[in-house]
Design a protein around this nucleic acid. Structure first.
Length: 652
DNA sequence: ACACTCAGAC
């Protein structure tokens, strides 16, 4: 067999690579599709003359080794087109090793200085994840054209090396090249990764060179503004595009999804379909993620309907997001159905199902699901254990939690800080405050603010003032601008009757400029989202809503509700505190729901911060009074109120 | 014959 390495005109490093690769493929029966020597044995150059035109030639060995064998054997004369086809093949299949072999062949041929072939080589290295090799070929070229520049810039842009891509772009301009739509598409992607300033500068270049309305450049621009959070500007660019495709629609929709603007994302999805574009898995995934973030169940279901009609398979890529959406929107039943119907489940599918169970306080079911996962031979990962530990923590399964933490380490999975936070939470909620403190002292990584926040939360739950104050001090040190811990500490003092200390924490907060996130609750009725903020008068039905709550409050008092004003911070008299308490956003939302939804239907309310103790009690009484299920989504879990009790068992 | 845009979930 003729070896092409006998008289190498190319550099040592490539030679070594080629030798290595060549041996590798020859010796590895599992990866080499066929033995080159056997495959071409007995044929002569002449008999292969016609095969060069044969479209099946490259298909015989998809990675091109077959053809390289023919060339090696002298059975076939290559030309520039053939090399380009081979390189394209390697690029499409992401075959770096075979690509290097073709590169070596080219260097040994008379086509080594052909710009088009060199460009294909650059492109091959760029797409196969090796921008450095692409750059090396580029640097050694005697002459470069637009395609060379674009290919090498794209190499860095697509391999998360945006700064180098932008650097090359500047060099290109310095060399006198005027960028075209191909270059600008890639450069914009790089600029987007670097920052808003850079993005805007490249936008200016696009406008100057007249490529601003190309659909590729335009999509990249829409994405750039969307990633900066500048949705108005993204929309201006989008509207200015004469011809659109699914990419620019997806970029715009994903931008709104990132900002949790579910209503807009859903509306755009609908407009996209009306305009005649097919929603892809990515489109669905973005829209479901948007619905998940605000718990928009009805809108999510509506889009799910479109997915079913579209005929797209329920693969994990979109199914996992859909499952997550149902979990976060409060329908554990629908989450289960999606899980059952998935074409193929991956570890994330299982993790999402576990998360959904955990969020709904179904600790036992989570553990059962995890055991089923293991019995089916699915390998759990770090996230799996985080789900299980969270479930144990939320359901008070102390022993199980400790067991699974040890199991995790036994399976050689290293707990990260999130697992330690969950363990502190687990121990703390279960009332093992001393154990939790000891756990923190002994953990192998430095405790973060989140660790101390978990301990602080447990101290509030079990009314431990001293340890709570200590934990709060640690949090203030590590994360001074979070209002949550201030409020927690203040509540600890207030519920122990130490109102002066509570007021001091409040004052400290004000002095250091820490702002409390305004509490708000919202619910969805017939595709509209109604939002309520405590003591807020902006809703059109506010007077009706308030009167309704007063009526309800009177009725639940008759069956045992006693307002608990201990968590009201304001240093005001008892009557005023009670008035404030009755205006909490979740109570307003509940009153609104009772006014505007059919009798007997499930009420679903979402809240941006943890539900207050008094509202939790009131909701239990209301569920008994009206005989309806009320599902309240907290920051990280669900409360299902039914018949006077809550699924969390008052353990949250 | 060679170069471009978006991109889910725990």
């Amino acid at each position: 067999m003729k070896r092409y390495i006998t008289n190498p005109p190319f550099s040592d490093s490539i030679l070594k690579t080629v030798l290595f690769s060549s041996r590798h493929f020859a010796s590895s029966a599992a990866t080499a599709p066929l033995d080159l020597e056997d495959d071409i044995g007995g044929f002569t150059g002449a008999s292969f003359g016609g095969i060069i035109q044969d479209k099946d030639l490259l298909r015989k060995t998809p990675n091109g080794l077959y053809v390289l064998g023919l060339i090696d054997n002298g059975a076939m004369d290559p030309n520039a087109t053939l090399y380009n086809q081979l390189l394209k093949r390697c690029t499409q299949l992401g075959r770096l090793k075979e690509g290097r072999l073709v590169h070596a062949h080219v260097l040994n041929s008379s086509y080594r200085n052909y710009v088009a072939v060199q460009n294909s080589i650059i492109n091959m290295y760029a797409k196969c994840g090796s921008p450095v090799e692409a750059r090396k070929v580029f640097d050694e070229m005697a002459e470069r054209d637009m395609v060379s520049w674009t290919a090498v810039i794209t190499g860095f842009s697509q391999n998360d090396r945006a700064q180098e891509a932008l650097g090359l772009f500047v060099e290109m301009l310095r060399d006198g090249f005027v960028p075209n739509q191909f270059t600008l598409g890639s450069v914009l992607k790089a600029a987007t990764a670097v920052g808003e300033m850079e993005g805007r500068q490249i936008h200016a270049v696009c406008l100057k060179s007249g490529h601003g309305d190309d659909v590729y450049v335009g999509s990249a621009l829409v994405d750039m503004y969307a990633k900066c959070g500048q949705m108005e500007e993204a929309k201006v660019v989008f509207d200015g595009l004469m011809s659109k495709n699914e990419v620019c629609w997806n970029a715009l929709i994903a931008g709104h999804a990132r900002k949790s603007e579910a209503a807009i994302a859903v509306r755009l999805f609908s407009e996209m379909k009306k305009a005649g574009f097919e929603a892809t898995h990515f489109t669905y995934s973005s829209v479901f993620a948007a619905c998940a973030s605000i718990g928009a169940l009805e809108q999510g279901k509506w889009v799910h309907g479109h997915l079913v009609k579209s005929g797209l398979k329920l693969i994990a890529f979109v199914g996992n997001t859909l499952l997550d959406m149902y979990g976060k929107a409060g329908s554990i039943e629908d989450a289960h159905k999606v899980f059952d119907r998935l074409v193929k489940r991956d570890v994330v599918s299982w993790n999402s199902m576990l998360t959904a169970c955990a969020q709904h306080g179904l600790g036992r079911e989570t553990v059962e699901c995890f055991e089923e996962m293991r019995s089916r031979g699915i390998l759990p990962n770090e996230v799996t254990f985080l789900c299980v530990l969270t479930a144990c923590s939320h359901s008070g399964l102390l022993e199980e939690g400790l067991y699974y933490f040890e199991l995790m380490k036994k399976l050689k999975l290293e707990p990260d800080i999130s697992h330690y936070v969950t363990m502190v939470d687990l121990l703390g909620r279960a009332g093992q405050l001393g154990h939790a403190e000891k756990f923190i002292k002994e953990m192998p990584i430095k405790p973060t603010a989140a660790i101390w926040k978990a301990l602080l939360g447990a101290c509030r739950m079990h009314k431990n003032i001293d340890l709570g104050a200590y934990a709060a001090e640690q949090v203030f040190e590590l994360d001074p601008y979070d209002s949550g811990p201030h409020i927690l500490l203040s509540n600890i003092y207030a519920s122990a009757g130490r109102l002066r200390d509570a007021a001091n924490v409040r004052k400290m907060m004000n002095d250091s400029g820490v702002k409390k996130e305004p509490a708000c609750s919202w619910l969805e009725i017939e595709n509209n989202v109604h939002m309520f903020v405590a003591n807020d008068d902006s809703h059109p039905q506010r007077n009706e809503v308030r009167r309704m709550w007063e009526k309800i409050a009177d009725k639940i008092r008759e069956i045992g509700y006693v307002p608990d004003t201990s968590h009201v911070l304001w240093y005001v008299d008892q009557q005023e505190r009670e008035v404030r308490l009755q205006c909490h956003s979740e109570k307003l939302a509940l009153a609104f729901a009772l006014l505007n939804t059919p009798h007997g239907s499930t009420i679903r309310i979402k809240k941006n911060i943890r539900v207050c103790g008094d509202c939790h009690t009131a909701f239990k009484f209301v569920s008994q009074l009206v005989g309806r299920e009320i599902i309240l989504r907290d920051t990280n879990r669900f409360h299902h109120f039914r018949g006077g009790s809550c699924s969390c068992g008052d353990y949250w």
